[in-house]
Nucleic acid binder design. Structure first.
Lengths: 148, 148
DNA sequence: TGTTGGATGTTATACTATATCAATTGTGCT
DNA sequence: AGCACAATTGATATAGTATAACATCCAACA
């Protein structure tokens, strides 16, 4: 992500935080910037290390976790629990509503891509699932499928 | 899972291990039995604790991890990385080939179900993905989708 | 100006997972 | 039987991930 895109994204992020009633503090911005520049998922500790490498005032992993929680709550960051990693949303400024996110992860090289045009098939599948009686909270559902 | 089903499953497991060229040792069997009886995903440490509660000779978490690795390698157990948990394959004795597994996880109550009839839509989607140039190992792919 | 709530600092600790080497067990072979 | 070899498990240490709990700081607002 180049400098211009980054600036644009930061502006969007600012608006998104304001809308959600949260503050886009300097550290939150810096954490997001690192993730955006990384262009790949980072663990909280990798992020912390990178932060302390490039920023003047240091940060603790604890704070990074809190900031990531916040950024995730406003849909600027995705948490990939299966990887223990976090990544900046690939299409922050596409006006994506984020009702449905989708990722593909290679279990050999650990490459991750976020699918921007979430397939209608998946949407239909989720709709199907919502009918199943066994789930009490159909709006907080994760689907995992893997080939091997 | 009742006693009769369990015995049947254990027989299947035995065959599966033999076919794969591995031994179905007593501890491996005991670990599998606990998972089968639990009827839900367990963490390695929960499993260890349970093991030491109901079995006469104790086990260490390290061994449990190794045994789970083995059981996963012969498709008797699934590892749910996003949950840091392991679960017995729901349809061990269905003759499932396990080229494609699929789970639904509720992020609120953490309930997990394994889909036995993996949707054709998902299969088609994976087939699509296999064409994408950005993945070097298309046969080791995980798809994650979540609604929120 | 005081105070109040959100954000961050700080320390401690729980939980998850793997590395490493030693001991044991089983299996085939002579 | 006795030996050699490989697979399994024991045992200890340590890395890596995540949260709890309390203190401090700071900005917004009455």
């Amino acid at each position: 992500m180049n400098q211009q895109q980054l600036k644009k994204t930061i502006r969007f992020a600012n608006i998104k935080c304001a809308t959600a009633g949260g503050k886009f503090t300097e550290k939150r911005q810096q954490v997001l910037e690192i993730l955006l520049k990384a262009n790949k998922p980072l663990s909280a500790y990798e992020l912390t290390e990178q932060f302390n490498k490039v920023m003047s005032v240091p940060i603790l992993a604890m704070s990074v976790y809190r900031i990531l929680d916040f950024l995730e709550s406003v849909s600027l960051v995705h948490r990939l629990k299966s990887e223990n990693k976090f990544m900046a949303c690939t299409h922050v400024n596409d006006g994506c509503s984020h009702q449905l996110s989708m990722f593909l992860i290679c279990s050999k090289c650990n490459k991750v891509i976020e699918m921007s045009d979430v397939d209608d098939k998946i949407k239909a599948l989720f709709a199907q699932v919502h009918i199943l009686p066994s789930f009490d909270h159909p709006m907080a559902l994760t689907l995992i499928a893997y080939s091997h």
